[in-house]
Design a protein around this nucleic acid. Structure first.
Lengths: 132, 132
DNA sequence: CCTGATTCCTACTAAATAAGTCGGGTTATC
DNA sequence: GATAACCCGACTTATTTAGTAGGAATCAGG
């Protein structure tokens, strides 16, 4: 489970939005709260917006907010947007073929866990049972 | 679960050794069976040997073999040697802190699964129950 | 003791990815 | 029109990845 800095920042920014009351949150505030380099953050938020996960508003009192309720955005949603869809492994020849099943199982477990946990869970600090 | 080509090759090579009867297996045979670029494979096998996972013998009829029974080398053993030990994430500030627990749980599940599966399992094609 | 098969070892390179940075444009409010 | 914010593409620098190159050392058989 290696997440790039970019992906981690995206998750953290999204959680920050989930934790904010109602209105637009300016990037500057996220940057400070989560210690994310400002210009880099802009970049990431832009990507999240283009993917439709968040909305934005320019001008004074502008900022970003979640496009859907925090209970309906999973960590997997964010990660998918940032990392893109992973391309398949090529086949493993001969005796090493069963390795494919192992890696597949790993990936599935990961996906299922990350799809279950929402921004609301994280922001509230009340995670569902993690041991499955 | 992103495994570099190098790591995947290492796993495949190790499985190939686990599947071989007794004596030394020359790198050339592994290279062909697993479609791994020859010089690159040399390099990887060297690393596995230095880590003590395999032994080698030079000269005609030389080659590589496992240093321990295949039942006692886990996939995690191989991966650890190739990837090295992952350094910790820095802390997640404020509301994003619970993310640490999520990522930790993910990593633990992975480690436990990969530590349970041995080269013998893979080579025999009889994997233990993967859904835990 | 020579030949060929094989491993051993360091160093190098080209391409991709990661982690940001930069410069300025656009939109909204007061 | 000043100010606060987002918008956007391009650029830069460092690291990692995926190998390749060149040759030295070792060993068995004849």
């Amino acid at each position: 489970m290696r997440l790039s800095a970019r992906t981690q920042y995206a998750l953290r920014a999204a959680v920050e939005l989930a934790a904010a009351p109602g209105g637009p949150v300016p990037a500057e505030r996220i940057s400070v709260a989560q210690r994310i380099p400002r210009r880099f953050l802009d970049n990431i938020l832009l990507q999240l917006r283009r993917a439709g996960l968040i909305h934005s508003q320019r001008g004074p009192d502008g900022g970003y907010w979640l496009a859907r309720p925090a209970t309906e955005i999973s960590l997997a949603d964010i990660i998918l947007v940032i990392e893109g869809v992973a391309q398949e492994n090529e086949r493993f020849p001969g005796v090493s073929e069963p390795l494919e099943k192992v890696l597949g199982a790993l990936r599935e477990h990961q996906d299922s866990l990350l799809s279950e946990i929402t921004l609301a869970h994280v922001a509230a600090g009340s995670l569902p049972n993690l041991s499955r």
